[in-house]
Design a protein around this nucleic acid. Sequence first.
DNA 1: ACGCCGCATTAACCTGGGTTATCAGGGCTA
DNA 2: TAGCCCTGATAACCCAGGTTAATGCGGCGT
Lengths: 247, 247
Amino acid sequence: MESPLIRKLRQFIPLTPGEKAALGRIGGHVQPARPNDVLLDQGRGTGVAVLLHSGWAIRHRTLRDGRRQIIDFVLPGDLCDPSCYFQRQADCAVSAITDGTYSLVRASEILDLIAASPRLGAFFWWLDAQEGQYLRAHLVAVGRLTAYERIAYLVWELWTRLRAVGLVEQNTFLLPANQALIADATGLSHVHVSRTLSRMAREKLLRRLDRRYQILDPARFRQIAQVEDITVSRRLPEAVAARLKRY
Amino acid sequence: MESPLIRKLRQFIPLTPGEKAALGRIGGHVQPARPNDVLLDQGRGTGVAVLLHSGWAIRHRTLRDGRRQIIDFVLPGDLCDPSCYFQRQADCAVSAITDGTYSLVRASEILDLIAASPRLGAFFWWLDAQEGQYLRAHLVAVGRLTAYERIAYLVWELWTRLRAVGLVEQNTFLLPANQALIADATGLSHVHVSRTLSRMAREKLLRRLDRRYQILDPARFRQIAQVEDITVSRRLPEAVAARLKRY
DNA sequence: ACGCCGCATTAACCTGGGTTATCAGGGCTA
DNA sequence: TAGCCCTGATAACCCAGGTTAATGCGGCGT
């Protein structure tokens, strides 16, 4: 069984046999996970990352009173998150939301890898940077989009990421999360998630069957989610300058 | 004039003369900035980061209709953001909000540095990881805290970061931002920011004079902002530091 | 000395989305 | 076949925070 890391990295650069061997060595001890299993606890000073072989997980933070924010979804093959090596304590918990398999990767393993191969170091950094991009987009969505736009953004993000790993067919994908999870990811209540998803179905934007989602109109979806503005970017238009003057 | 990068990095490890020389070489061409100057444009495919020598800046993203989210504040000495090297286009703009000086650092400069010295690579990654922590905390705040808590969090974050660079005295610091900026950072309206800051003054949590903020009750502030739940230690773990020394 | 502008404050009003609660399927176990 | 639990839909009500607008003030240019 090939390591998910090798599978991921070699999409981008050819790996030397030495690098492959080194990569293959990390992420041993594959363990099974069940929904709601905590793979990595918030506040634990472990210096480990989670390599998710299969299944879905979430990275989330929970306040004492129970309010919870999902930072991001962890998809099969993701390493979450390599930069935790530089922290004393995990600042988020990672929990499985489906059945799956994972392994824990210790800081030292990756740091040795970086020392041995700077370009692998850069590569892990790059993976981390990608995550940063999604994170910033997520922040914009939660901070400045309406509920309708926000959910459109979430669906669009997942669609995009799942497509990249071959888990989308006919614009349809599985999102194994109940509406309470979607609420925690978007900063909404589960009731309003339900309202909003129903509205999207009514408006023929989205079709749902259990937890399979089909995007019926990708172009309108992008537009509603303001994807252009959120993920890539554009110049500052006149209208914006005018508006900013009002402040 | 010593480069801000050298000043920052040598707090953590002794630098070799070669490393110092290499670090000194990047971030030349120091330029002046004025409030509202765009140091780096959203969507530009430049692969450059901003090294802020003095003054304050913001990293932000603006939607077509003028809604804007501030991703974070860039303080004097910050490199914002090194991971942009891995992007084709900047996903955020960086704008000055005070007078200051900065230089643009090209991707190639940092990448060469990483190749020459893996441990410098690890350090840049670490800087980036810290930013990631603040970003995740910011997301939790915007997604799940009330306006009151959110503003408490922002003030606390800035207080903490400014203290680390010696810009806090008697729990007092300068926040050179108008309330519209604070609103864009917290996902609120500027009216509500005003209301909330007034409330904090009324409750003897915060004193304001122009844009100088004094935290009157740090303990209660931490509690309101739910800092314990939101953030964790930001120091480099011993184990990592030790390992990097060996490189 | 005047007018302008940016900014903070405050009031009045409104609404998007939260809260609470009920009901209606499945899917599971027994 | 009944009893649960998990989940989603929907309704009724509520409120935190948005919107709009007016006021006041201090700094600045002329």
